[in-house]
């Protein structure tokens, strides 16, 4: 565990907490894409298939459980919770997310470490995670105004993979550890997708103004 990896995990964890706080405190999931949340639930469920077979550390297992359970809880709040499901901006959340799932399945079948059940699912989860934010970014762009907590949620979620890239660079030089090119490439794509959002986030932060995305 190095400082970049820890920073990555903490920003990831923080993004989830901010999202839960937003839904709980405002009793609203407006501005949040259910499509993106469903994709994340799928990402964690397919990546952490090793939860009960390979023990790495208590930290690792706890974080896996947190990410699986929080993503499933958020999907539940948006689909079924009597108070919050009505606040979901269904009409703005029209991204065809099954296309992302389909493309990720095809990529995982073509490019993986080994052709085993778990490795193919692992690669699938990496590809899907890289693009899972797209429905959320499209929803924000459509609604224009972004509330503070939603803006912070997306910001921390973007920062997380950027820290992971620094972590891979650090590990490459210190441990002779190399991440497979699959995670490198997907991680870069994932972080690049946030470039536009980061830009407007910093501009609004610098001007102490409300975050607004251009139409």
């Amino acid at each position: 565990m190095n400082i970049f990896r820890l920073a990555g995990d903490m920003t990831h964890l923080f993004s989830v907490l901010v999202l839960l706080l937003k839904i709980y405190a405002t009793k609203s999931c407006s501005g949040i894409s259910l499509k993106t949340q469903e994709l994340y639930a799928l990402v964690f469920l397919t990546r952490y298939l090793d939860l009960f077979t390979d023990f790495i550390s208590v930290y690792n297992s706890v974080m896996k459980v947190v990410f699986i359970s929080s993503s499933v809880a958020i999907v539940w709040c948006m689909r079924y919770h009597p108070l919050t499901r009505r606040t979901y901006d269904k009409d703005l959340d029209t991204f065809r997310h099954y296309i992302l799932v389909g493309v990720s399945i095809i990529l995982a079948l073509l490019f993986h470490d080994r052709f085993t059940f778990r490795e193919v699912f692992w690669a699938f989860s990496i590809y899907l995670e890289a693009v899972a934010i797209l429905p959320q970014l499209v929803l924000l762009q459509r609604s224009g105004n972004v509330d503070n907590l939603t803006g912070q949620y997306v910001f921390f979620l973007g920062a997380y993979r950027a820290f992971y890239i620094l972590n891979w660079i650090y590990r490459y030089f210190t441990e002779n550890h190399y991440s497979r090119w699959i995670s490198w490439l997907a991680g870069f794509v994932q972080t690049a997708l946030y470039a536009d959002f980061f830009y407007y986030y910093f501009v609004s932060w610098k001007n102490n103004a409300k975050l607004q995305l251009p139409a």
Partner: peptide, 10 residues
Amino acid sequence: YSGTTTKDEL
């Protein structure tokens, strides 16, 4: 293959 993959990461 040589080297480890990233399965110790999240």
